[in-house]
């Protein structure tokens, strides 16, 4: 049971979170202008590294905020979590 540092609520058990996959995959500015190839890359292609991985998590059972962290996929050690706390307007 990993201990995941929610930037708002502090460290909590993994089961309180929802995994959001690779971080930094931005929704294209104008999807209609994107080639089929690039659109498919956006939809379906993700990295799956052995080692350091920047990924997204949602504190689903807590404050319902999405945040990013970097995790070592070999040891499950959390390297750091996002300083930029996401706040809706």
């Amino acid at each position: 049971m990993m201990l995941i540092p929610c930037p708002w609520c502090g460290p909590r058990d993994e089961i309180e979170f929802h995994y959001g996959g690779q971080a930094g995959v931005a929704y294209p500015q104008d999807p209609q202008a994107v080639s089929d190839q690039d659109w498919a890359e956006f939809l379906f292609f993700r990295d799956n590294p052995r080692g350091e991985f920047a990924e997204r998590w949602l504190h689903a059972a807590g404050c319902r905020r999405w945040f990013g962290l970097r995790r070592d996929t070999v040891t499950n050690r959390v390297l750091d979590s996002d300083d930029t706390r996401t706040v809706t307007q």
Partner: peptide, 20 residues
């Protein structure tokens, strides 16, 4: 603030999220 509550007269205010 995060993780805390406040007593406000006969009301109680609970922090639920950064803007909630």
């Amino acid at each position: 603030g995060p993780g805390t509550s406040a007593v406000a007269g006969d009301l109680l205010v609970l922090w639920m999220g950064p803007d909630e």
